[in-house]
Amino acid sequence: MSKFLSRYAAAMDRASVFIGHACSALFFACIAFSALEVVMRYGFDHPTSWSIELTMALCAMAWVLSVGYVTERNRHISITMLELMVGPRVWHWFRLMQILAAIVTVSVFAMAVWDPALRVFSRPEYSGTALNSIQPSLLKVLILVGAILYVLQLLANLVRWVQGTEKASTHGH
């Protein structure tokens, strides 16, 4: 069982990091499309109708799906003032509480975005603009996928906490 769990944690970590790295390519595409729009408008006097909606969809995808990577690296912003006050042993148990609270919250959150996400499969929602893209439906599904990824990576972090193989958290803003 323990072996299975540590294999799960390792596999989940790899998946999260892989998706996270893929997200960096998405951001790069966003930058390219936005810069291109400026060139099209001023260089060729020919603004595109798709640039903004496509950029928003790609960016949204990147920052929702990067959640596993962020969680794997323990980069979610939190206040760690008490760490110095309570000492490492007590803080270790605080870590457990933080992981459990996050698992519960994000699971409930996933339930909250569940219905809207499934609804778009029976009744797709379009942007209604000139492009009339499927972007609104896409975002509703994405946020559910993001929440599920978040929970799965939190479970991996929980396994690491139990097995004493947690990664050091890194500061970041």
């Binding site: 996270g20 960096s24 390519a25 790069f28 920052w63 990067s66 990577y69 980069r75 912003i77 970041g172």
Partner: peptide, 16 residues
């Protein structure tokens, strides 16, 4: 590549 990955981590934590 590193600049992009760092961006993903920073932005990914801000968005939540």
């Amino acid at each position: 590549r590193d600049a992009m990955r760092q961006t993903v981590l920073t932005v990914g934590s801000i968005i939540w």
